[in-house]
Design a protein around this nucleic acid. Structure first.
Lengths: 134, 134
DNA sequence: ATGCAATTGCAAATCATTTGCATTAAGAAT
DNA sequence: ATTCTTAATGCAAATGATTTGCAATTGCAT
């Protein structure tokens, strides 16, 4: 409820474990997902929540709302690209550049809207999954 | 947790009031927003929740996740178009057709993905709000 | 080593949403 | 109009993700 500038982050065992889990994961994770991995190291669920929120505030991770309405976190790597998501295998590939740049320019001209952002996930079925079933 | 086909809906005073409120609103509303309007008519909050979920199951209203993570509901009018949302005044205008059709075709060809869907909300500032503040 | 601020664990609080249950009301069949 | 079946309602309590208060611990700069 307070988006001020980053606060110094202390390095602790728990936080390093949390980051490691996130680093090894290909996909965004909920706090509970992460907790399942780190709890046996004695890390508390509150700590997971607090750590991830702290990471997010510092731009280390990205927080998004998952489909089941839980927050999902993922490491911020470089600049985010547009992503192509396979609805079968959940593989994600990144698209270089913005495929909608031209289209948005057109929309802006037609409507007078100053366009600031747009959603960037495109859902489909990847070539492998197209072969597999049916 | 069960997306079966629509069940018969009974017409009641409460539901009519709820629909009326939604009809008069330009913007999506949370259950609580709606409840504030209908509670003086003796409609219970649970009723609002249940009615809206029933409406959604019947395709009467659309349920989305608002920015504060609460569900917001809006009447389904015609077929949904792509929508341009002003982040200042929250005005929404609909775009005829799909502005990304061509771009998606290109992506599909380049990646082999069969593209099924994509996000459709574009965020920006409308001409009026651009004039207003700075 | 010392001290202050950040971090943690734990339990309890929050808040939106759902649900169990007994009661009421809608609407079809009689 | 009366009866009957089933959905809809009100109320309170349950749920589930997330946050928070507080006391104890730890990181780290001095």
């Amino acid at each position: 409820m307070n988006n001020s500038e980053p606060i110094e982050l202390k390095k602790t065992k728990g936080r390093e474990k949390i980051l490691l889990v996130l680093k090894k994961s290909q996909y965004p994770m909920t706090c509970d997902d992460i907790y399942k991995e780190v709890s046996r190291s004695g890390v508390n669920l509150s700590t997971v929540y607090r750590a991830l929120n702290a990471f997010e505030k510092n731009g280390l991770v990205k927080k998004e709302i998952g489909e089941d309405k839980k927050n999902v976190f993922s490491l911020v790597t470089e600049d985010d690209h547009h992503v192509l998501v396979c609805i079968k295998c959940h593989r994600r590939i990144e698209l270089p550049g913005c495929p909608y740049h031209d289209a948005n320019a057109k929309i802006s001209k037609a409507t007078g809207y100053q366009i600031l952002d747009h959603n960037t996930e495109i859902y489909g079925i990847c070539p492998e999954c197209q072969k597999k079933n049916k």
